[in-house]
Nucleic acid binder design. Structure first.
Lengths: 358, 358
DNA sequence: CTGTTAGCGCATTCAC
DNA sequence: GTGAATGCGCTAACAG
């Protein structure tokens, strides 16, 4: 197929040695203007693509990956992120990587700051970053930039940073998608409750806000469904959720659908079950273990999913490609798919990209 | 991380040379019982995993891939399959592969037979097979088996064959999924039309039949929606579709939804538009270019999608892994995800697995 | 049957 | 500043 042209070939064409070509390719300096020009001409002409395998073989360097994400609870969102990372490290076990996790409490800016400080001090070759607090992250990225440490975002991206890549779903689209689903499945003449607390203040992540923005914009365009009540009923504790929900339903007995804009749909589903309201449909984000259970039980109807394990898998892959040959795109954004999951198409346990054996 | 143990190490441990170990790993014979036992013991103990890169480097063999699929029209289903293959060949351009396509008319058994004959004669290292006609495929596979040529299925699997792997979505689940969507979005007190011709006879592919089976089984379980009319209105020609649809709607004016069980949803959508029936919702399978247009226009509401380009991408990947080191699983099935696509989550043009550059 | 050896393409070190 | 030389881990050909 393609890719037959070797470094030696272009060396020959340019009338230099392989070593010189290599120096130019890797921008390692110590090359005369004349040779540089000659080689670059050939390089441009032939469209050289290095052989991944031989590079990897020759480069016996061990790369230091720092992974900085919120605490990954098993079966929860960030747990899936971690799984994707592990699975990629396994898939690419032929490149020598040592990974180190730095995890913070995503509800606690202080914890995040502390964690970020550690990351900034760590001598990493690359950082994979699942950001929550915007300002802190901008700060961390500036520090990494100044130390020349590249970083890759998963889950969401942060303005005013310079990541190598960012793997995240478009949040406003998620909101619009939610809107369109609501329009489609909301029982006629019923009210809809939008549930999920939107943390406020400068320390907040964008995702929830962007989802809501997308949703509301969509709802303005298609104003053919009953009024919507943005509320904040989802506390961490089960009882809170149930009580708030009960109060709300007293005011709005004609509710036909609850849309949860975070991963806590299972709390709502269970609360509704306890309240004996089987007639109310539930939509949630994220296929956490609890949500999957509710989906199977039928107490959650739909899940909107932005494959976290795929995002992190691809992040590791991109990191490797960046490090081995300096693959850098102008636009770091890697738009990730958004899926709709029902009981009938729950994805299997093994991620798609991994073959089964081992 | 893992993968530090080299072939040389295990040779040392077993008290033999690297060459012997290699012979055993590759089942190339010419090894004494004693040495074989010793090496296999060590092998099992240490859980050796060969280094992909060095294998690929050392093996400068050029692999011959034969791809045998229905004619890939641009923007249609099998066009996506081809795209996935090309994209994988590009991704793995560092292994030397020559690919050759053998395409047949999926509506014509004679064409398929002829094509299969050519494939059976071709000296391939591996065959990637998108089957349509069951009996012919069983026959081809038997011939490939007898010649020792491995094969991998995409899109669907065929009983009584021995593929290395099979990348396909579970069709009955697709049917059940369709059922659940119908239940969710079908307007109350409206009828539902199931559209799509189910070719009959021994030469038929399974997919459509299995989808229908899944759908009907699901509908039996949840009999809370209005009667369904399995019909066969979708001809190849536009005018046929429109006429048949018009007749049908005369008998069933109260139709609220048409579910198309193949990729021809756009024909129905356009026909409904021509008939001025904007009130009828449309679901279809497969995100072909035409269907994507209708989705954007709003004339198709939902698409059920079984990422054809992902299936074929993974098929090529599996083929490479199988050839380079004889990775073979007991169960060839690789269940593929099924997605629900609306206007708001149409996947981007670049497939997920490929990074953008080059 | 078995050990030894050459070489895959590239990155890097070391003489020149 | 530059070319030649070495080795990464593995495969396959070759010599015993």
């Amino acid at each position: 197929m393609a890719q037959q042209i070797k470094i030696k070939d272009i060396a020959e064409r340019a009338g230099v040695s392989a070593g010189t070509v290599d120096r130019i390719i890797h921008g390692r300096g110590n090359v005369s203007q004349k040779n540089r020009a000659a080689v670059e001409a050939v390089l441009k002409e032939v469209g050289y693509r290095p052989n991944v395998h031989t590079s990897a073989v020759a480069l016996k360097k061990t790369y230091r990956f720092s992974v900085c994400i919120p605490l990954p609870d098993d079966g929860e969102y960030w747990g899936s992120v971690k799984e994707g990372i592990e699975s990629a490290l396994d898939e690419y076990s032929d490149v020598s990587i040592v990974s180190r996790y730095f995890c913070y409490d995503q509800t606690d800016p202080a914890s995040c700051r502390e964690c970020y400080d550690a990351v900034a001090e760590e001598p990493s070759d690359i950082v994979i970053l699942g950001p929550t607090f915007e300002e802190l992250t901008v700060d961390l990225c500036a520090r990494l930039d100044s130390k020349g440490i590249p970083y890759i975002f998963v889950d969401c991206t942060i303005p005013n940073t310079r990541p190598v890549a960012a793997f995240c779903a478009d949040q406003p689209s998620c909101g619009r998608l939610l809107g369109s689903i609501i329009r489609m499945i909301s029982p006629q003449d019923k009210e809809v409750i939008i549930a999920g607390r939107h943390r406020v203040g400068p320390a907040t992540a964008n995702n929830t806000r962007e989802i809501l923005e997308g949703l509301f914009r969509y709802m303005e365009e298609f104003s053919d469904c009953r009024p919507i009540f943005p509320t904040a009923i989802i506390g961490t504790a089960k009882s809170d959720c149930r009580n708030e929900l009960e109060l709300l339903l007293k005011d709005h007995p004609d509710t036909g659908l609850v849309a949860v804009i975070n991963s806590r749909g299972h709390l709502v589903a269970d609360a509704l079950r306890d309240l004996g309201r089987k007639d109310i449909r539930v939509i949630s984000f994220d296929l956490t273990r609890q949500n999957e259970r509710c989906l199977r039980e039928g107490s959650i109807d739909l899940i909107i999913l932005q494959h976290p394990e795929m995002q992190s898998f691809l992040a590791v892959k991109a990191a490797i490609e960046y490090l081995i040959y300096h693959k850098r795109d102008d636009d770091p954004m890697r738009p990730m798919p958004i899926d709709i999951i029902t009981r009938e198409n729950i994805p299997g346990p093994s991620s798609y990209f991994n073959t089964k054996s081992q």
